[in-house]
């Protein structure tokens, strides 16, 4: 009896040692893990001694920037919460529209449209649950706190930021960072869609500057999506969509004559009506396709 227990313990110890030695062994396995953990993109140089990754902002920040530049609230522009039933196809569609609704939530919140915000929080929670992010809303009773703090704009925005942080953590823990990149692409398209629609009617110059600023992060979104292309093949189509908007912007006269090596001051750049209309049309077309 004692002998068999003794053997079991030694066997257990041996298994642990073998497993541990395996984890210390080949460098290639170690670097693959690093690639997975950090969404590493292609720029690895000189035998993986250099790695590059991209960090994207939150949908709340995008909405906050537009709000600061004077983005007015126009009802009916945002995607209707009723459309949520359409987004059950796959996780790519869910993530993309979670991004769209996250922007709509922030847009209504920053414009103190609290009843609408409640509806957008509900659909964000619904899609998040389908994506396995239910815990993000349950941690510290965030969803309940949102309802209790209705009307207190600052508290509500802090709660949204907290939900974003919880979602980011869950996605990272479960190696699902590709969904974060897809969701951000959805949020980005929705925010430039809303801004371009509002600008088309009020011609607020500050809003146009903020809109052009958004194009400066388009390449970062593409990098983040490409890093995850293996996990989410539809990322390629999304990259094409972003590129089609970006190339229209880059082909505008003011951008073409600017020095590509310098960071542009968009407050000194003006798009012609024709250039803006082409951009608006393209953004509208892609956004319609996302929410259909």
């Amino acid at each position: 009896m004692i002998y068999s227990q003794f053997k079991s313990i030694l066997f257990l110890g041996a298994v642990v040692l073998i497993l541990k030695s395996c984890s210390d062994e080949p460098k290639s396995t170690e670097s693959e893990l690093l690639v997975k953990a950090d969404s590493t993109i292609e720029a690895a140089v000189a035998e993986d001694l250099q790695e590059t990754t991209v960090d994207l902002p939150s949908p709340l920040q995008l909405a906050s920037i537009f709000k600061k530049s004077g983005l007015k609230y126009v009802g009916e522009i945002a995607n209707s919460p009723k459309n949520v039933t359409k987004y059950n196809g796959n996780n790519n569609v869910r993530a993309l529209n979670l991004g769209v609704y996250s922007t709509d939530l922030a847009y209504t919140l920053l414009n103190r449209q609290f009843d609408e915000s409640k509806g957008y929080l509900k659909v964000c929670q619904e899609i998040s649950t389908a994506l396995g992010l239910k815990k993000a809303f349950e941690t510290n009773g965030l969803a309940e706190r949102f309802v209790k703090n209705m009307g207190k704009e600052d508290s509500l925005m802090e709660i949204i930021a907290e939900i974003q942080m919880q979602s980011d953590e869950i996605l990272e823990e479960h190696n699902q960072e590709h969904l974060k990149a897809v969701a951000f692409a959805g949020a980005w398209f929705e925010s430039i869609y809303i801004a371009s629609k509002v600008y088309a009617t009020d011609k607020n110059k500050y809003l146009c500057v903020s809109l052009m600023e958004q194009f400066s992060i388009a390449e970062n979104i593409i990098k983040a999506l490409k890093a995850n292309q293996k996990k989410e093949p539809e990322c390629e189509l999304l990259c094409d969509d972003i590129n089609s908007v970006l190339s229209l912007f880059k082909n505008s006269t003011a951008i073409k004559i600017a020095n590509p090596d310098e960071d542009l001051d968009f407050s000194k750049i003006t798009l012609t009506d024709q250039e803006f209309n082409a951009l608006e049309k393209k953004i509208n077309e892609i956004r319609t396709n996302i929410i259909k």
Binding site: D38, T52, D55, P57, I65, E213, S216, I217
Partner: peptide, 10 residues
């Protein structure tokens, strides 16, 4: 090893 992260700002 050098690991670099690009942070997008406005």
């Amino acid at each position: 090893v050098v690991k670099e992260t690009e942070v997008a700002l406005f």
